[in-house]
Every structure is written in C-alpha cells, then in structure tokens.
C-alpha cells in the first residue's frame, strides 16, 4: 500500500529536491564562513557576478534565449545606482532599488525589440542594443566618460547599518544575492517556469497550446534584466565605482562564459562559474592580455568537450539535480 501512496515519480522528484536543498545549505554555509578566510571584497564581487550569471541563466537555461547584451542591464543599473547614491544622496537601499528598477525598464524596452526575432538573431540584436547603450554611456554627461562615477558613498542601510564596514556590506550583499537566487529558483519551479521550459523545448507547440509565447518570453526577459540590474547596482556600491567596463560587450561575454563553465540550465552552475572566473581573473590580472586568450580557450573547450559545465557534469555523474 505504501508503494501506491508514494509512486516512484513523486519519490524521484523529492530526491531531486533533496539534492538541491543539500547543495543550497552547503553553499550558504560556505558563504557565511568564507569572509573569515577570504578577502571580503573579492567575495562580494564574485557574489554580484553570481547573481548576474543566475539572471542570465534564467534566459538561456530555461527559455533557450542567448542574450549577448546583458551588460546593458548590469552596467546601466550600476551607473544609475551610483548616480542616485552620489548625486541625489539616496540611501543605499533606495539607490539599489532605483538601479534594479532601471534594469527592469531597460529590460522592457530592449526585450520588446529583441524578442521579435529568434535564435541567432536574438543574440545579435541584444549585442547590438547593448553596444548602442555603451556609446550612449560613453557620451552621456552624467556617466563621467572614461573616468566613470567614482567614490560612490555606501551610506547607512535603513539609516542604521554602516555599510562602509566590509563585513556589514558583505552581509547586505549576501542577503540580497541569496534572495535573488531563491527568487529565480521559485520562478523556474512555478507554472510560469514550466511554460518557459515548454517554449524552450518546442515553441510552435507551446503556441498551439494557446500560450502567448511572446508575452512569456518578454516577461522572462524583463525578470532576467531586473535581476541583472540588482547585481549591477550592488556591484556599484561594493566597488564604489560605476565604469564603462560594466557596459562593454566584454562584460556580456564574461557572463556567458561564467554560465557556460558552471553549466547552462543548472541551478548552481552560474554561481560556481562566477566564482571560478572571478578568481581566475583576479589571479591572472598580472598577466595582462593573456586573460583574453585564456577566456577564449575556455569558451572553445566548453563548447567542444564540456557542454554540460562543471555542475552539469557533476549532477550527471551523481544522477541528481543540481
């Protein structure tokens, strides 16, 4: 009778979720312990990129849309958050919210243009739109051109917590990033997320089932842009700097790389990928242009022999969901 009450399918699903919970607990434990061992600014940088990569993964991994212009949302949210905090004197929570919302608005505009074409064109269009906004950032007076916006004040969170302390800032970033991470997990496991996966697998069929796929795709795009915006806004506060690097196409390429290394369409892949790539770049910064070559080699290796990514391979080997 017990077998009837608990059919194998439900069992498997519960097993799958168990592995995810174990992994989540391990990740949180590591992130809480980490600042006692590792330089907090490095960790915060990696966390911002982890959220950025998770936001990107929401599109490529669950809707099958490759955006080659996500730096647009990351970088512009970073600029607007920095501007709000420095020039308008917004408190940090308001500045981050402002940056995040600007990511959403840009997502609506860019998304409604880009989803008009599919596949390879989608990637080229997002790349072109991001490049356009790079030139706007280069020329716009408030962005400070090549200098960027420097000395952004971190301020006091809710007027209480002084974010200029690295540990306090770390807790703030960690909480925001984990909230974003859980939000994405919730999205992909909601009925809405199931429709997204259906669109990824077979769009004409989703249309024939009566779904307005364009609206779903736009919605996913805006969600992804919003979370990328959150990541960018946080990064502006962490480094107290918003600069052209964050809106340039190389940044769009980097987030593709992080997600690809970690594993497209895995829950934890983008986080692992972001930590690895950020660590690699910090370590290799002294070798100058070799970073570009090494990034390129990783791209090629991932596509040719390692398409599941690190977490994807691990999940495959263990036979669990990660």
């Amino acid at each position: 009778m017990a077998a009837l009450a608990d059919p194998p399918l439900v069992e498997a699903r519960r097993d799958g979720e168990r592995s995810l919970w174990v992994a989540f607990v391990v990740m949180v434990a590591l992130l809480i312990a980490a600042p006692f061992v590792v330089y907090p600014v490095f960790l915060m940088q990696a966390l911002c990129f982890a959220l950025f990569a998770c936001a990107f993964n929401l599109l490529i991994g669950y809707v099958g849309l490759l955006s080659f212009g996500h730096a647009l949302f990351f970088g512009w949210a970073s600029y607007l958050c920095a501007h709000a905090a420095k020039v308008w004197g917004f408190p940090p929570e308001a500045a981050v919210l402002f940056g995040t919302l600007s990511g959403a608005v840009l997502g609506v505009v860019a998304g409604s243009i880009a989803i008009r074409r599919q596949g390879i064109y989608f990637a080229m269009i997002t790349l072109a739109l991001a490049q356009m906004m790079y030139f706007v950032a280069l020329r716009a007076p408030f962005t400070g051109g090549e200098d960027g916006i420097q000395d952004v004040p971190r301020g006091h969170l809710f007027g209480v917590f002084d974010l200029s302390h690295e540990k306090t800032m770390y807790v703030f970033v960690l909480v925001m990033v984990l909230a974003g991470f859980l939000f994405i997990y919730r999205i992909i496991n909601s009925p809405f997320g199931e429709v997204l996966k259906a669109i990824r697998e077979n769009e004409p069929r989703a249309i024939s089932l009566g779904y307005n796929t364009d609206r779903y795709k736009l919605c996913a795009f805006v969600l992804s842009a919003t979370l990328a915006g959150l990541a960018g806004a946080l990064k502006a506060l962490v480094f107290q700097l918003a600069s052209l690097t964050d809106v340039y196409w190389t940044m769009s390429g980097e987030v593709v790389l992080m997600t690809l290394v970690g594993g497209l369409g895995t829950v934890f892949g983008p986080v692992v990928g972001a930590f690895l790539i950020v660590a690699m770049e910090n370590y290799l910064a002294q070798f100058g242009q070799w970073v570009l070559v090494i990034q390129g080699v990783i791209f090629v290796a991932c596509v040719l022999v390692f398409r599941r990514g690190i977490v994807g391979e691990l999940a495959h080997a263990l036979g669990v969901k990660l």
Binding site: V256, V297, R307
Partner: peptide
C-alpha cells in the same frame, strides 16, 4: 546554432 556563436566568439577572443 548558439554553440557556433559561442565557439567563434571564443576564437575571436583568443586571436
């Protein structure tokens, strides 16, 4: 097709 784009992007970075 997306893998082709990513692969050639990687090659461009290397070069």
């Amino acid at each position: 097709h997306l893998y082709g784009l990513i692969l050639t992007f990687g090659l461009a970075l290397i070069i």
